[in-house]
Design a protein around this nucleic acid. Structure first.
Lengths: 96, 96
DNA sequence: CGGCATCCGGGACGATACTG
DNA sequence: CAGTATCGTCCCGGATGCCG
């Protein structure tokens, strides 16, 4: 499956889901909203997503540093898929 | 992400996709249509899917043995998600 | 035909410490 | 604040062989 090559990985769907919900998030914010993720995994998966052109990383030359992440155009095209996954997840939990 | 607990695993989306395409498939048929899967993984992932109530396994007491797999009602509810994943995959390949 | 048992290697993932 | 570096573990997945 092609999709898995991109959204595969334990945390990517969660990261993308929260990014599409909030629009723009900083590194520290992502750490808070994605439940249980470690610094390392967040950093790693973000880098992969950026390499695949799914998200855009923007660095501000400030002290303290600020880095923002948002979905790219290609990332936005994932929205129907992410919505479908999320809504199915809700249904599944409701059934028990 | 809840969905990943169920469709996570390298092969599950592919297996489910082909099952929803063909309706009913035998073990050997799945082995042919799922590209590159090994016996072990196919057997293992099918068992997990059955445990999670996503697919139904039907055994015929014949010689030679015959085992058929199909989506359960719960499995059918995955259809929108699988379709979304598949169509995004197509789009992605078309862009290059 | 449709599996299960076993062994094994690599990579995913986590915890911790350190840095610009 | 936003990462990198390092080390260790776990288990996913492949290869092979056997069984009803």
């Amino acid at each position: 499956m092609t999709s898995l090559a991109v959204i595969g990985g334990k945390w990517k769907p969660a990261i993308l889901y929260f990014l599409q919900q909030h629009g723009v998030l900083r590194f520290g914010e992502l750490r808070k909203v994605v439940p249980g993720i470690t610094q390392k995994m967040l950093s790693q998966q973000l880098k992969e997503l950026e390499t695949d052109g799914i998200i855009v990383r923007r660095v501000y030359a400030e002290i303290p540093p600020r880095v923002e992440y948002r979905l790219s155009t290609l990332g936005e095209s994932l929205r129907p898929m992410l919505d479908a996954m999320a809504s199915w997840g809700m249904d599944y939990l409701r059934r028990g």
